[in-house]
Design a protein around this nucleic acid. Structure first.
Lengths: 218, 218
DNA sequence: CGAATAGCGTACCGTACCGTACGGTACGCG
DNA sequence: CGCGTACCGTACGGTACGGTACGCTATTCG
């Protein structure tokens, strides 16, 4: 009872606990159906009693897993420097590629499926956590770049939130919903880069002010 | 055993069966968790045995429900006439409004949640049905309009599928994923129309050739 | 009118799974 | 050495739910 649940206390999970959470992620990816406490305990070589001691209940385990995965994605939050047209395009391209790589990954698909299924009922919003660490986290990282671009006279827009949402739509299009609904689109890195490039060009066509490089492959 | 399952045979459901399917939809919207065969039978005032006779099993009932809802959405498939700029814009606006109204509706959200949760396992792809009647159905209706616009010299693009996907992204942006993950965005008709208008303007800015009416409310 | 059929209500079965209890083991510490 | 702690493995209780069986009623049809 000292250690209590890593979920409620929001402490960082221990190495052993992280191993358990990775097992949960693995089971999610394999087959979301067989994600049972017995299966987790068996695969993780730990007892169910320990699972309940650490995570409280099934929802606690799922929540901890979502947080754990989210904590991995948060990478560099590099400060906004002075932008010229080329670096702005490059930064946007990076965001688009990263985002597409994330949402097309099997872990993201499985995690979003679980969270969406859970969002139907009330208790313990996994959906909120996924949104906060996915859609909104990327938004908070992109908007400063957009604003720096505006400050440098490269972009013209009024509402950075609305502008980011357009960028989001141009990048993601129908990909996420199709994957979530079970279609098996396979993207290699090349296709993702091509897709991201198209989205960035279209975004700059809508919001760009100067055009330092008029190559259009739309 | 004469009548057999309305699902397997793909016959149109009888009026009584439609009432049952509407009950299922209602339960889905209310709370996806309590969607149990007992609850359906109780709410629909029919026996579970009848449910199993009509629909085979739980998946059959869900599949029939998805089909039933899909059959309602398929509205006018009006043939493409000659387009001028104003009617092209109007047609696109109509599609955007309709699509946004559908995906923001509680029925669509609940149905997509069920289908996505189901897509995790293999058996009985509700996801495929939802995709076919949602994303792909709207695509097959929009693409002829785009091609008619191109034939009239109003639009310029090479791949109508890719072009539609951009339109899809500009209209939907992050709305569907946020709703599926449990965020409560409430749209009134005015906001939907404004959103659709912005999407259409942006789409025409990317793909339009002539601009007969340069009012920009972006 | 009598038989058959469709369908309602309900009781029931089997199973899957969450959550708990309990015995056994390894390890640190006084 | 002996005690407490942490944990594994497993067995068990409780329950919810999918699916089936059966009795009863109403309607239809010969």
């Amino acid at each position: 009872m000292m250690q209590a649940s890593a979920t409620a206390e929001r402490e960082a999970p221990s190495a052993r606990q992280q191993a358990v959470l990775d097992v949960v992620l693995g089971l999610m990816v394999e087959d979301g159906e067989q994600l049972t406490m017995d299966a987790v305990a068996r695969r993780a070589s730990c007892s169910k009693e320990t699972l309940y001691k650490w995570f409280g209940d099934r929802d606690g385990l799922l929540t901890a897993t979502v947080r754990w995965q989210a904590s991995r994605v948060h990478a560099g939050h590099d400060a906004a420097q002075i932008l010229d047209g080329a670096t702005l395009r490059e930064r946007l391209q990076d965001f688009a590629v990263t985002w597409l790589e994330v949402i097309t990954g099997p872990t993201s698909v499985a995690l979003n499926r679980i969270a969406i299924a859970h969002a139907g009922s009330r208790k313990s919003n996994l959906g909120g956590i996924v949104l906060a660490n996915g859609r909104f986290a990327i938004g908070e990282r992109v908007k400063p770049v957009l604003e720096a671009g505006r400050a440098a006279g490269l972009l013209a827009f009024a509402d950075s939130e609305a502008t980011f949402r357009t960028f989001f739509g141009l990048v993601g299009r129908d990909i996420q919903i199709r994957l979530l609904l079970g279609e098996t689109l396979d993207f290699d890195g090349a296709e993702i880069r091509r897709d991201a490039g198209r989205a960035v060009e279209q975004f700059l066509a809508l919001y760009g002010q100067a055009k330092p490089d008029p190559n259009r492959h739309v």
